[in-house]
Design a protein around this nucleic acid. Structure first.
Lengths: 215, 215
DNA sequence: GTCTATATTGAGATAGAC
DNA sequence: GTCTATCTCAATATAGAC
């Protein structure tokens, strides 16, 4: 039983639905166990519709993975367009990434499932590179802060792992618990706490009244 | 067709091999996709041998999961039998957990695969509780440190997330990369760095020459 | 009992009408 | 753009010879 075509104003509603349902099913059943039939049934369309929008199941999967990449790239671009202290920009980066993840929780959950779960014949996606990119971005920000004197000369690697590790734990909390025990504000505090550890002791390095210090 | 009982000298070599091969296969193919046939073939025994040592595939799986629990419990027990400053004990806990994980990397990898991957009909194991236990243990240590004045009065939740998050990121690095970019010593430094942020400014709170400050 | 050849199933993918 | 109907192919199950 057909439903009338969607209004053109809603750009490719069907395409979005297919991706969303695929994400949900990949999370629940894994890539290989999820059939094209199940995806189209969940999206309320038929098989050819899927093959019209995506070349194949594999291609659909890759487009989903690509959407994750876009989320990260957006945040890194936004970062480059942001002014402010290194501290502010680091907090902005992490909070922004958490916000993006929050708006796309199911796809983040899928990324974790793919990364840690069994391969299942799904095309390889280099999630390690994502992590490296975040690590490198934070490292560069720290390096800048050390140059300007906003941050004391320290072992950047150590600070990077503390920051990125904390971020990841808080991110995981968002989709592994029904009621996360730590949120956006907690992240701001954690990042702030770690950065306090490398703030200069001199008054000019103080950071009162900054954007993210509230709570 | 029964096999004779294993020589008592080699304490259940076969049993261990079965568990190890099961772990490897569960990681590679997932729980449901791994057949009993594949496990026994990898261990070089026949099906009845598996059913002799373990009641079922499910039971074998549960014993593997139980071995993870034992690893954590051991570390928490060791902690209670450890003297030293709060700082030392926190570092000892994290380093000890990393060491345990290192000696049992494949089972840790499996735990992550199960936790984040698709359910696959495997019996439920409450991994969240593991995480909570670590969080609570660290929190209690921090609380003790605040009472004794070794640590300044701070938002313990924030410090806990920073510590446990960093630990987890470093743990994941151990089994997600062929050559981890951070190791045991890095963990000590990260934990030390975070704890420095809550150390009292007064000289009596200083922590020179402690067990884990080398590197 | 074991092996090989054949059925059956169910997956991804497509052709062509509307 | 979407449908019905169909194709191809691989894995699995089964039958029947040996």
């Amino acid at each position: 039983m057909r439903v009338t075509a969607p209004p053109v104003g809603i750009l490719n509603d069907v395409r979005q639905r297919l991706m969303q349902e695929a994400i949900t099913l990949f999370v629940q059943q894994g890539y290989s166990a999820t059939t094209v039939r199940a995806i189209v049934a969940a999206a309320g369309v038929t098989k050819p519709v899927l093959y019209y929008y995506f070349k194949s199941k594999e291609n659909l999967y890759l487009e989903i993975m690509n959407s994750i990449r876009k989320l990260l790239d957006q945040r890194i671009e936004m970062l480059h367009a942001t002014a402010g202290s290194v501290r502010q920009r680091i907090q902005e980066l992490f909070v922004g990434m958490l916000d993006s993840a929050h708006e796309n929780l199911s796809v983040v959950r899928l990324a974790y499932a793919i990364y840690f779960g069994p391969p299942q014949g799904a095309p390889f996606v280099d999630f390690n590179h994502f992590f490296d990119e975040i690590l490198d971005t934070v490292d560069a920000l720290l390096a800048e802060g050390i140059t300007t004197g906003e941050i004391v000369d320290c072992n950047r690697t150590i600070i990077c792992w503390a920051l990125v590790g904390s971020y990841q734990a808080i991110l995981e909390e968002q989709f592994c618990r029904v009621t996360p025990r730590i949120d956006r504000n907690g992240l701001i505090q954690v990042v702030g706490q770690i950065l306090d550890g490398v703030a200069p002791k001199t008054p000019q390095g103080a950071h009162q009244g900054e954007k993210y210090e509230a709570m």
